[in-house]
Design a binder for these strands. Structure first.
Lengths: 327, 327
DNA sequence: CTGTCGTGCCGGAACGTTCCGGCACCGGCG
DNA sequence: CGCCGGTGCCGGAACGTTCCGGCACGACAG
């Protein structure tokens, strides 16, 4: 079932069929309709390999997630959002594993563009991806040296953490603390900077402790115990990493604190762990599916030359207040 | 940088270059080495579109995950395992979102084969995938009508649940209960059946309650409260869904039970939620990354005609005993 | 009636690879 | 010396698409 078959059936040439179906070229409207109908009826499906060869595009984009992603449902949602958006432009999304360009073929001939989510300095695959010779969109900025400018979709982490701190202050907290992720990601940097700035402008220092980028509840529990032991006046804990807040709740319970009353708890990343906790935990909803969609959309726009390759867009977040801070 | 460029540089014809690099055809070993060297030095990368067109294969496989997967890090691990294995055969993995063959092109021209993980009867995308005209490997069996036989990698869920029940019995439990997932998946069916069988052969009925396929801790907590309220003699709870076991722990704590002592808790799916819980929860480790790898490997073998398309393989699990059952 | 222009369609050449048939060459045998 | 089989390499066709140049034809102005 090729273009030629359709052409024969419709009594026109393959060029006309191509033009008719593509919407390009000069084709009479009547012919176009007829061709479309014949193609539809014959169940014609363009051969993507031939199309890609001719157009010298691959019809696919690559998606790279942090190695730690294997733990976070956040990235799963993001991935599906990206797939949905890419699909609207007829693009496939191929999942990139650790040794990106190594074993398999060259990236450039396999994808038209790349989505690199939360690129960390320590991730050895990232430089190769940024330098693959295809347009790149990063989710959050890459803080390392970048050979070429890339597009990016960024969250205003400063604003969201500020909102969180303002919120707990509004609920009576006087000495908030932050469990910040380690690592040199844009996210980690922004949180630390914002905590310091907020402390400066509000007169009360924010106590900052470091936990792993992909902290487990156990990590958060241990960090919280140490934190509250060293400074019992802490009356609010903002736990940055996804899924770790339940650990804060456990530590609070163990230390006889009442979450929502004498200890407020919040998280910088919303997720099922926060919604399902007891009490449910106030969090910043980064809306991962929409975020993935936004990244894919930007890349599609860049590929279609609808926007310059170094475009930066913002992604909106929302504060979800729950009993862990509202009592 | 095409085959022709390499050919010119090496002073041979494009056919010879192709043969030399592919390892096919009759080429003198010396020529082969020289061509390889020239290609390497020139940084030649085969154009995948041209290759695919000529070979009429796409060089990619599709991966379909349950819609509920967006919650489970289990599937994320599985996906990465599959990607790694596929990469070893030079295949890309494209992520398939909900409306699989609808908006975008026809599946058959985009992928050489399909991985359909935990296919549920209720998933409307599944029949189309099974019927896409390419080899399919399912992770766990599909219980609905299948137009053509598919390959499958299965876990012995009966054996693993039996092992779990035997384990808690060995630790003194006399009245175990199961929080089984709803839905018509092979996994759900196997668990229910096994619970009934185990109860029959051990003289003590296993109490079975249904929770959502992708139950939250809150779901599990509520179910456990109802369970223990209706039957206080229950002394072990096996919680099937991934990530929900912490809810069982919360319910136990609220009802004054001591987990690991007068109430044993275990899960049918291991994950970070079990390892990081307090106390850590005994679980069946399905080794998702290895599982994904096994699925991809089977598909690769089928595509390479190394094994028949309806091959079924087993995947090994391991029981991880932790304080929630060992005290 | 002739020249010009625009519309609608077509033929053919690419895109880069694989693979088949065939040619030249060489050594061995009758 | 002529024939034959095998080895090593090559040319060309094909895969299915897109896109460019061009041709035929009708309309319209001069």
């Amino acid at each position: 079932m090729t273009l030629l078959d359709v052409a024969r059936a419709a009594g026109v040439s393959k060029s006309t069929v191509s033009d008719a179906l593509q919407g390009s070229g000069r084709v009479a409207e009547s012919t176009r309709d007829r061709v479309r109908e014949v193609a539809e009826q014959l169940g014609y499906r363009p051969n993507s390999a031939a199309r890609r060869l001719r157009r010298s595009s691959t019809g696919a984009i690559g998606l790279h997630l942090p190695q730690t992603a294997t733990r976070l449902d956040y990235y799963m949602n993001l991935a599906f959002g990206a797939v949905q958006r890419a699909q609207e432009d007829g693009l496939d999304v191929v999942l990139l594993a650790a040794p990106a360009g190594a074993a398999s073929g060259p990236l450039a001939s396999r994808v038209d563009g790349l989505l690199v989510i939360d690129p960390e300095i320590g991730d050895s695959a990232v430089p190769g991806l940024l330098d693959a010779g295809v347009p790149v969109v990063t989710g959050e900025r890459y803080l390392g040296p970048s050979p070429t400018p890339t597009g990016a979709v960024v969250c205003d982490n400063a604003a969201s953490l500020t909102a969180l701190l303002d919120h707990v202050q509004g609920r009576g907290a006087r000495r908030p603390a932050l469990l910040a992720p380690e690592g040199a990601s844009a996210w980690a940097e922004a949180l630390r900077g914002t905590a310091a700035a907020w402390g400066g402008s509000h007169g009360s220092q924010v106590a900052v402790r470091t936990v792993p980028f992909a902290a487990t509840p156990a990590d958060a529990e241990a960090a919280t115990r140490r934190l509250l032991a060293s400074d019992p006046a802490i009356d609010a804990v903002v736990c940055a990493p996804d899924g770790a807040a339940p650990g804060v709740l456990r530590a609070a319970a163990a230390l006889g604190r009442t979450v929502g009353a004498d200890l407020l708890v919040a998280s910088c990343v919303d997720g099922v762990a926060n919604r399902g906790a007891s009490p449910p935990v106030t969090a910043v909803d980064l809306r991962p599916a929409a975020y993935g969609r936004a990244c894919a959309e930007l890349l599609c726009d860049i590929l279609a030359a609808r926007t310059p390759p170094d475009t930066v867009r913002r992604h909106a977040w929302a504060l979800e207040t729950r009993p862990s801070t509202t009592g």
